[in-house]
Design a protein around this nucleic acid. Structure first.
Lengths: 275, 275
DNA sequence: CTCAATATTCCGCATGTTGGAATTTTTTGA
DNA sequence: TCAAAAAATTCCAACATGCGGAATATTGAG
């Protein structure tokens, strides 16, 4: 019944939560991981290995702040609207998201494809935004806020491929074990794919790992030339002919360059892989 | 230099933050309020009336949790991606947002208008989702996550109008003073508008408070018949003829009813106005 | 290069936090 | 419908953790 929430906590072997603030955030995470149906206090306490009174007090504080909603008849807790409001302003790290938004909309309209904006976050890529096309799409990233390991999917792969050498190695070393369970991706395959992406400057795959789906992605560079994001589309495989691919890549590249030009100097994606 | 952040803290005369968790959240709020350009520690300390060491420690915890990004050269703090990820799962309170998403998209496509989904939150309405139409739009709610006082704008007004009598009174009493500065809305006007909306079951305004913009909104009821949300469009005034209005209201109503039918029993928007 | 402003670390004090136990409320089962 | 079990909430004393003044390090300005 437990979800892939643990995978989200990537780096250091966490030496247990320390501050009560962190405990509170852990509660938020646990509630989020549990999904929209809400969690009961006892379950939270068990999952997080805290005592019920502690969880209760933290929950009370979170409810008071509107970060959590609490069924009035004292049953379930779920994420609150204030959290939503708060984070609506968060995605726009350096306004990347705001910058890209109109571009995504235009692209999805003109290409008639579903367009994704991914950014790096540690060892993962996160879907910052997404504009729906007319075709039903399956993707690794899922909806806005979704995350995938760096290397899985075209957009994510593009970011990985354009990372500085040492960071790239570190990510690969960290992610390969995580990919074991998925059973279709080995080191050779990954490194080959990376090399190819780096060489041609974009990632594409006809009939990829998701049956019937294809993807095309280009990197988005910041002013310092770091690949901070990827612009990508997902589409039914049969829609993506070779000629179309060429055109799509071209258009994506142009838009990515446009974004780069507007990007502020500070880097939107951060890494802190060692911390 | 300070933003309308204080307005977000609606209800009780806050007797100062108590728990450190709440202090931490206050910091998140302060950073959010400051916008994407980032805040310095000292400014946070001043704004929140905390000492620099306290702010620093809390920030450190928040950074460790990925809720905040910290320029490596030790300058500015901004909201982090993990917060974004966390809250991406929050908006779907009771899956209202997820339910409505495809409907918004369809509406914006068929009507060629910008469509909004608003929910109540205390004395405000929050923009849960928004699907762009082809026309440039100005709205009170702004983008996803934006908030307006209940009563301002057609969607927000619709929710207010359909509230239970006592809650409606309470909201009006609370919001009227807040509207003073805006200088175009008095009590008579507001009550008249509410009565009209309640009577016709939808809100509309040719040439509203935003020059050149018009809006149409219908309430979305939950299973208990409470108006928990509003579905609305914003459009250039000259686009909204009387005949078109009729049709639009009709379509919006139909879709709102569709959402209602699918709504879970628990109420997605919560009020706790007295707490 | 110096000085002022800001960020960060230190550390003793005390305040907020903690969890066992008690109490109230809700759910389960008969 | 009621009784028993489980969960939620409150209490409180022990104490760990967060607090802030002061010291230090770092950054930025002139």
């Amino acid at each position: 019944m437990s979800d892939p929430a643990d995978l989200q906590r990537a780096p250091t072997g966490d030496a247990g939560n320390k501050t009560s603030l962190q405990r509170g955030i852990a509660i938020l995470r646990a509630i989020a991981a549990h999904g929209g149906s809400g969690v009961r206090l006892t379950d939270l306490a068990r999952d997080l290995e805290m005592t019920p009174p502690t969880v209760h007090r933290l929950l009370k504080a979170l409810v008071a702040e509107g970060m959590i909603d609490h069924d009035t008849q004292g049953k379930r807790y779920r994420l609150g609207l204030d959290l939503f409001v708060l984070a609506a302003q968060a995605g726009s790290c350096g306004t990347l998201r705001d910058l890209a938004r109109p571009i995504l909309l235009r692209l999805s309209a003109t290409l008639r494809e579903t367009v994704f904006l991914l950014v790096r976050n540690g060892f993962d890529a996160i879907c910052l935004d997404r504009a729906e096309g007319p075709f039903p799409i399956r993707s690794f990233t899922g909806d806005i806020g979704g995350r995938v390991m760096l290397g899985i999917g075209q957009g994510s792969l593009t970011i990985l491929a354009h990372l500085p050498e040492d960071e790239q190695q570190e990510v690969i070393r960290f992610n390969l074990p995580r990919m074991q369970g998925m059973g279709f991706l080995d080191e050779v395959y990954l490194r080959t794919a990376i090399a190819k992406v780096k060489a041609q400057g974009y990632a594409s795959q006809h009939s990829g790992l998701l049956p019937g789906m294809s993807g095309v992605a280009v990197p988005v560079f910041d002013r310092q030339g770091r690949a901070v994001a990827a612009l990508s589309i997902g589409t039914p495989t049969d829609r993506l002919t070779d000629e179309r691919l060429t055109v799509v890549v071209d258009i994506l590249r142009r838009e990515a360059a446009g974004i780069s030009r507007q990007l502020n100097p500070f880097d939107p994606a951060l890494s802190r892989p060692g911390v």
